[in-house]
Write a protein that binds this DNA or RNA. Structure first.
Lengths: 181, 181
DNA sequence: GAATTCATGTAATCAGTTACATGATTGA
DNA sequence: TCAATCATGTAACTGATTACATGAATTC
């Protein structure tokens, strides 16, 4: 089973949901971490159901509109736990188009490269600010067994990542200045 | 055209190569930044050739073995330059299976989560050491117009990224300890 | 002579995105 | 009544991996 399946199991472990609500979760709470469109979610729900890892009940919204509210089964919970505890080797570092462009930037001027670094720095600074706003919503550190504790750790991961990106780009710009004059 | 095409153009801009040599470059020099298997490279070379962005000459190794040595064309160079200078919006943060597992780790014990964090920390520390060894190969900062200067900046990106990962995981472990006792 | 590396391709499959397709419900 | 959102699916296509397939050259 692929990661998407486990992501769905994890969300359904937190609470029962429809496919539509799952797709909203991928756009909001999980946005920084994983994503999936509804066109991928619905087929995946079907195969999770066929594997006995989730179940569903049909509910009626209004007078006729049917929606399927999915629930994780005990088999599903076991699968999820096994996956969460599986500490395999970290995958290869993710592909990074910006660093690839930088790698090949000796085909353009040093000035053009500097502009690239600056515009990218601005983007990461903005991201960092957004994440820090999310961090401020936590008034205090949640208790260790609260799911909010995990949310907080994951959020911290994004903050550290964006801070590192900013520091790296600032260092690059500094090195360009050093060698430029 | 996709990123792989530009990666190939960039490598061929540095020097002419066979498909086989390109695949070795993706395993060595570009490993941290981009990757591709030969099964993806050969078809891509074909379409780059059909688009007039690269050219090739057949050379003979030994007595019969034919190899195609690819060269970038002037059209290819222009395409490459345009791509390197294109500062579009940074893509969505890459999917991160480890952070996803952490996000759902309230389905396992706090102890199990701590083990995950520790084992992951060890992996990133190892990666960081490897990158720092590469950094030590640079005796001094290369001149700004040298391609080695870009190599150095890209390497720094990996180092900052791994450092941030280590710091994040150490912070997580520290927070677990704080809330654990 | 045997193993490793050099060298080039195709086929099947998987994960993921974009586009196609439909229709009900809710709130302005 | 009109727009936004809720709700569920399928189809076509792209990017990427794994497996299939072949054979020459080099090195031990």
């Amino acid at each position: 089973m692929g990661t998407l399946g486990y992501a769905i199991l994890g969300l359904l472990y937190r609470r029962s949901m429809t496919g539509y609500e799952l797709s909203k979760e991928f756009e909001s709470g999980l946005f920084e971490v994983w994503s999936a469109k509804h066109s991928q979610i619905y087929p995946e729900l079907k195969s999770l159901y066929e594997a006995g890892l989730i179940d569903y009940q049909v509910e009626i919204s209004g007078t006729v509109l049917e929606k399927k509210v999915y629930t994780i089964t005990s088999d599903g919970e076991r699968m999820l736990q096994k996956w969460v505890q599986d500490s395999g080797a970290a995958p290869q570092a993710p592909k990074d188009e910006f660093r690839l462009r930088l790698f090949f930037s000796d085909c353009v001027s040093a000035n053009s490269r500097r502009q690239q670094l600056e515009s990218r720095l601005a983007q990461h600074q903005q991201r960092l600010e957004r994440l820090q706003k999310d961090q401020n919503k936590f008034e205090e550190l949640p208790p260790q067994d609260d799911q909010a504790f995990n949310d907080y750790l994951v959020l911290l991961g994004g903050i550290f990542r964006e801070q590192a990106a900013c520091q790296w780009l600032e260092t690059c710009l500094e090195l360009c200045r050093q060698r430029g004059e």
